[in-house]
């Protein structure tokens, strides 16, 4: 091990890795927000609660049914997505004719309900979720010890993000989605069932959030408030990146995580606000966001 700028390499790279992990969550969550916003034109304030639900469902599957991490990684996003689909059909779909801000208020209310109910039931102290055996331990990379699970989180997030990018940008299904984002009426006039696409897209965005939640469960303790503050940072990430570009959202998410990690090393006092400071600068220099199209 060695030192960089007087900082032990383990400390530097350790923080960078933590930053990258936060960045993974920013990337997945802002990607979900962007996909939902593109088609539904609402900002899904419930996103943080759905991330938390992903972690909770994983914990419940383990605690009540003995279903482990790997199954939870698939089951929890599916189950949470089902609740999302119900939410969209029952409530959100009634707001499409109204101002977009009503969608924000509705999903904010739903987030309060979900968080409140779980807080009543489980308190706020948080429940541990242990790292699956296959991913426990650490590797010595020479310049740092890499906890295997943390490496896995970064890799899994990247794979899911790039997979999402591929589906949206390179497949026929993605072409429908992009077309409906641009002009839903015309896509409907081609005989395509746009309302069903909207519902499934919402479900998919929610599943992304829940997937991030399962990944997060072994790192942070599982608690009802875990998504509440995170979602606000993700909003800032979305403002910085702009919601026009999928790759842009992914790059912004990981990049800001790294910046946050670096700040923790060199000026820890500012680490919790650095993203907001960057947002302020971006608003001054490029209000539409780094990858946004000026409207």
């Amino acid at each position: 091990m060695f030192e960089i700028f007087g900082i032990p390499s383990q400390a530097l790279f350790g923080q960078l890795l933590l930053g990258l992990i936060n960045g993974s969550f920013y990337a997945i969550l802002s990607l979900g927000l962007a996909v939902i916003f593109g088609l539904l034109n609402i900002i899904n304030f419930t996103h943080g609660a759905q991330y938390m639900l992903g972690a909770f469902v994983a914990w419940m599957l383990l605690t009540y049914f003995g279903i482990g991490y790997w199954w939870a990684l698939i089951l929890a996003p599916v189950l949470v997505a089902v609740t999302g689909v119900i939410l969209e059909r029952l409530l959100i779909s009634r707001l499409y004719q109204l101002d977009h801000l009503y969608g924000l208020l509705l999903t904010f209310g739903v987030a309060l309900i979900v968080q409140g109910v779980l807080r009543n039931h489980y308190g706020i102290s948080g429940m541990p979720y242990s790292i699956p055996e296959e991913l426990s331990g650490a590797m010595n990379l020479g310049f740092m010890f890499l906890p295997v699970y943390r490496g896995w989180v970064v890799v899994a997030s990247l794979v899911v993000c790039l997979g999402t990018w591929f589906v949206i940008e390179k497949t026929r299904l993605g072409a429908y989605l992009r077309a409906a984002t641009e002009n839903p009426a015309l896509v409907g006039a081609f005989g395509i069932n746009v309302p069903r696409m909207i519902t499934l897209t919402y479900g998919f965005g929610v599943a992304l959030a829940a997937f991030a939640g399962v990944l997060a469960a072994p790192i942070y303790s599982v608690n009802p408030n875990m998504g509440a503050d995170l979602i606000i940072v993700v909003f800032a990430v979305v403002v910085i990146g702009g919601m026009g570009s999928i790759l842009g959202a992914i790059a912004t998410g990981f990049g800001l995580g790294l910046v946050e990690g670096l700040t923790k090393v060199f000026y820890p006092e500012a680490s919790s606000v650095v993203i907001f400071v960057i947002m302020a600068i971006v608003l001054l220099v490029k209000p539409a966001g780094l990858f946004g199209r000026a409207s």
């Binding site: 429908y176 992009r178 077309a179 641009e182 002009n183 896509v187």
Partner: peptide, 30 residues
Amino acid sequence: ARHVARHGIAFCPEERGIFSSLSVKENLLL
């Protein structure tokens, strides 16, 4: 509209309605 389309009616809108986020091929096959 989607059910009208299924009866075999196709619509070409004013200003063509080409999707800018789709390639020519994707537009053609949409």
